[in-house]
Computed example of a mutant assay.
Amino acid sequence: MLERIAASLPSLAPAEQRVAQLVLDDPAAFARLPVRTLAELARVSKPTVVRFCRSMGYDGLADLKLKLVGSVSEGVPFVHRSVDVDDKAGDVLVKVVDNSVAAFLEYRNAAAPKALEAAAQAILQTWRQHQRIVFFGAGNSGMVADDAQHKFFRLGLTSMSCSDGHVQLMNAALLRRGDCAVVISNSGLTRDLIAAAELARQAGATTIAITASNSPLAKACAIHLAADHPEGYDLYSPMVSRLLHLLIIDVLATCVALQIGPSVQQNSKIIKQLLRSKRYEQ
């Protein structure tokens, strides 16, 4: 949570930057002080304090404080630990699992429910209008896009995924108002993905980015689901970004499934019955 606020500093207005600095300087004090005191310390108005909270994706000051208290008091019980060349299998097991769990817990404390709700509602609107959702990704993110397509078509949405740069541009250009384009990227710097996002937005589709904060891709899309993590700390471990993106897709798919309601259960029942014939009897 604090890392995301620090990363967002350059994009904030000067008054909101002062509020952000209060959080970073003493998170525990920020969480317990009333809005009037916070405004005085930051030399801003009380509405500016609330506006900063909403700029960070929270519902307001109370929501930000709630997350902040959890982050500060609870902390993250797992830390990122590099794998060493002389590690035994047991050491590798513990380090790789702990690194993944740490990334998940950091995301849980920093995630903005408001952005998730906006993304879920956009996808629901696509479902209601019988429009289509397209997932874009490259490299590892391309595999996440495939997984997302698999999850959402089972919910009854017309969905597809594409990882080829040329196909991405063609698909993006053919999207229409009511469609959704979900663009997944670790760095948010991939040119083809940014171009696809811009084309999709120009075509009238709702664009959703799952990527790093303040990246060009995040700025190119209407809705941003932040996926920030210390990637690159260990060359031997699997990419945490892939696991984090998969987790975000799972959360988003669950939010959408709950809103769709009973038809999801019916679809799941039909699919399970069809797949039963593909299995050996026990």
Rank of each mutant, 00 (worst) to 15 (best):
Q17F: 04
G232M: 02
Q129M: 04
L235E: 13
V72F: 11
Y233E: 07
Q265T: 02
A103H: 00
R81P: 05
G57F: 05
L66A: 15
V79I: 01
C162T: 15
Y236N: 12
D26M: 02
N109K: 01
R276T: 14
A195T: 12
G137E: 02
Q282D: 13
V23D: 09
R176D: 14
T211L: 09
A212C: 08
Q131S: 08
L175A: 04
R242Y: 00
P230Q: 06
L199D: 05
T254A: 12
R176V: 14
F136H: 03
E106F: 00
A7Q: 10
L252A: 09
V35C: 08
Y107L: 13
F30L: 05
V76L: 10
L189C: 04
V69S: 08
L175E: 01
D87G: 07
K114G: 03
K67I: 05
Y107P: 06
L217F: 08
A195D: 15
S268Q: 12
R276W: 02
K46S: 13
A148I: 10
L116D: 00
S268V: 02
S277C: 07
M170T: 14
S268P: 00
T254K: 05
D98I: 00
A122W: 06
S263I: 13
A7W: 04
V23A: 08
A138I: 14
A148W: 11
A222Q: 13
Q125A: 15
L9F: 03
R128E: 14
T207D: 11
R51E: 08
I210P: 02
A115F: 01
C255T: 00
Q149N: 14
L155E: 10
L105C: 04
A102W: 04
G204V: 06
D164C: 08
A195R: 11
E106W: 00
G188W: 04
A112L: 06
F30H: 02
A13G: 04
L225G: 01
N99C: 15
A6C: 01
L244I: 12
L41A: 13
T37D: 14
A20T: 09
A112W: 01
S263T: 13
H80V: 01
